[in-house]
Amino acid sequence: MAKGTKTKQTKGKKLTLKMVQNCMELTLDGKRRLDLSFKEITTVPKCIQKLHDMDQLYLSRNLIRTIPDFIDQFSSITVLDLHSNYLEHIPVTVCRLQNLLVLNLCNNRLTSLPHEIGLLKKLHVLNLGLNQLEALPTSIAALKELRHIGLSDNRFTQVPLCLSRLSKLEKVNLDRNPILTEDAPSHKLMTVTESLYLVKESLLCEDCLSKCQTERKKMEDAMKRKEPKLLSLSNLVTQQDRGV
């Protein structure tokens, strides 16, 4: 979705309760899904409150700028998909959805997250790619069930240290961030925009682990010779191969 500057407020479509009910689906595993993606709506329809017993709520690829406070009525949802909208902030009410397993906030205009996001104790997947984030709240460390976090295409200059406290974390996507590396000859900082992935060593096959260890040793040796080195997390392996 194009995110160019608009000269006037876009007027979105209005959805009736009947139209919304026609968007209800039953997944193969028996979950009740309300899919309002691609509806050209600028606000979340108030009428969806009557369907608060859904298991999954999809509001992606719309023109939504704010999330209403009544979102916390959807207390049983495990998936909340808000990617590709115009969100500039996430209200605390979203953090009250204690059963969330997947939260997709990719491709919005977020510059920060509420500290209360640490309340989402069951969260497995958090996608924050394509936003304007420079840092994560320290409360992210409370998401002990988190397996995957997407941070690509943001403004991170270093790997968030709070991620090192997540013992179940399997993959961190930091692709296309301005990760800083020290350039010893000039003692200046340079921007690295190449792909950067972090995965746990236990998830790599023997050959890939050996390859990563070799590359890491090369970087350590380079550091001793005053050459650049990428930042890394303890107990995580820097990984540039998407296929691993």
Results as ranks from 00 to 15, higher is better:
59 L>K: 03
183 D>H: 12
143 L>Q: 07
12 G>F: 05
224 K>Y: 08
130 L>A: 14
102 V>M: 07
71 I>T: 08
104 N>M: 01
99 N>H: 14
88 E>H: 10
186 S>T: 06
134 E>K: 10
199 V>D: 01
178 P>W: 04
202 S>G: 04
224 K>C: 07
93 T>W: 02
234 S>V: 07
93 T>Q: 15
112 S>Q: 08
185 P>V: 02
67 I>C: 07
146 L>P: 11
198 L>Q: 07
220 E>F: 00
9 Q>A: 14
227 E>S: 08
142 A>L: 09
212 C>P: 01
34 L>I: 03
174 L>T: 05
221 D>E: 12
39 K>E: 11
242 R>A: 06
30 G>M: 03
158 Q>V: 09
127 N>T: 13
37 S>G: 09
91 P>C: 10
144 K>W: 01
158 Q>L: 05
97 L>C: 00
6 K>E: 14
88 E>D: 07
149 I>S: 09
94 V>Y: 11
57 L>E: 07
232 S>E: 14
31 K>R: 14
203 L>G: 03
240 Q>N: 09
46 K>S: 09
135 A>Y: 08
148 H>K: 11
155 R>A: 11
60 S>C: 08
191 T>A: 09
4 G>K: 15
6 K>G: 01
188 K>A: 08
96 R>P: 04
163 L>D: 06
148 H>W: 13
3 K>D: 12
130 L>C: 15
196 L>I: 09
211 K>E: 13
199 V>M: 10
244 V>M: 01
53 D>V: 02
98 Q>R: 15
196 L>A: 06
85 N>V: 03
149 I>F: 04
97 L>I: 00
165 R>N: 15
174 L>V: 06
231 L>P: 00
49 Q>H: 00
29 D>V: 08
55 D>H: 13
188 K>C: 08
244 V>S: 05
144 K>N: 12
79 V>K: 02
209 L>W: 07
40 E>D: 11
131 N>W: 05
172 V>S: 02
182 E>S: 00
100 L>E: 10
44 V>W: 04
193 T>M: 12
105 L>N: 04
